[in-house]
Design a protein around this nucleic acid. Sequence first.
DNA 1: GTCTATAGGCCGATAGAC
DNA 2: GTCTATCGGCCTATAGAC
Lengths: 233, 233
Amino acid sequence: MARTRPETRRVEEAAVDLPEGVAPPGTRGRILRAALKLFAEYGYYGASIRDIAAAVGINSATLYAHYPSKEQLLADLIVVGHEELHRRLLRALVESGSDPVEQLAALVRAQVLAHADFPLLAVVSNQELHALSPQAAAPALALREHSAELLLRVLDLGAQRGIFAVPDVRLAATAIGSIGIRVANWFHSGGAYSRERVADTFAEFALRIAGAAALPGDAGTTGPPPVAGQSIG
Amino acid sequence: MARTRPETRRVEEAAVDLPEGVAPPGTRGRILRAALKLFAEYGYYGASIRDIAAAVGINSATLYAHYPSKEQLLADLIVVGHEELHRRLLRALVESGSDPVEQLAALVRAQVLAHADFPLLAVVSNQELHALSPQAAAPALALREHSAELLLRVLDLGAQRGIFAVPDVRLAATAIGSIGIRVANWFHSGGAYSRERVADTFAEFALRIAGAAALPGDAGTTGPPPVAGQSIG
DNA sequence: GTCTATAGGCCGATAGAC
DNA sequence: GTCTATCGGCCTATAGAC
């Protein structure tokens, strides 16, 4: 394993954590968390079975009593990551009303919070998927498709109703999704911004991209109201 | 090397290419291009010296007549990538007027076009930097800092002049930058959108994030003008 | 500059004792 | 379930012939 290089991290230092209830108990769970940390930091090919075992404090052979292969370890992590995001997005939509503005804000808030709460998991899910065989990657890809569809449908509905004004729905979805995905690469809980602050601000940005109004009660913006000819529409 | 897995690519298929004038002539240049392709597809640790040599059609030992180490190959690529982006951003600013709106649009257009023109180089520059030693990474990190500073200064200036209306300049810069960076992961020249279309649309999104007006002559948006209470400001 | 050959080491995974 | 020991293979890099 390469040495730790704080200046060039793929992801900020984070308490290694998995969503509640998904880590297996005992040694198996400790292996999964160690793999998460090392895959996030060094990549799948950059972290060895021996590295993971050493981080847990067991012999590398012992690892195979808990997982059949290194690839299965990665596959489990990536499924967990995609499931957690999809679950949060669904819940956000369910808890929203029928207003596309509210729905879009809820989706973006949920995506940002998921990436802020589990940055290591998000980095591994997004940047190490390529190391899985197509069969092992398929479940995660299906979940990814469903998650993308949720955002696209909300944007489409809002555009059809004239609530959103956007030059291209698919490019808007791509742009909005990109903002949230990258949160995993820079957010850390001791940083300048709270998770809620980022989520609220990025939800506001998503509404602006969509050409919608700010939600009532949202954080105000600095600067004057728009001058003539600068309103969006 | 792992097999090719089209379903789970880190980057879309792309003509392997480097900015004009940066690839060395002859075998050395062919090695650099092969390394670019393989590092982008499999990551630094996922592509071996033997893989790169095989792609060029030479023996792995021959590679060391051209490059002193595998790490130097990566370091060269990453410097080239960061230099190209910084060069384009500077030129975009120089060719812009003093209007922050025009400057922001020009910066975003330049960033998007750089990532669309050299997606492999962008992916390697962004996602493999962690594999370099701090010394080898330092030049690229300095360039990255300068590039980020350009965007931040334009946003700051516009906000101070009341031309932009943004809740947080740093978060706005992060969001705008994220949209462009991710272009390298999904754009391909045979796809549904031309590079110019993406650049124009994402420049428009950046202006919306900044709370600015669309540039005159920009592509129109679908949907009606905003209803009362939905204008940005 | 390109090759063959190989050094020296780490890789994922397994066998078998306890 | 954990260990020691090890297999067969691939890794980066070098030596030395041509």
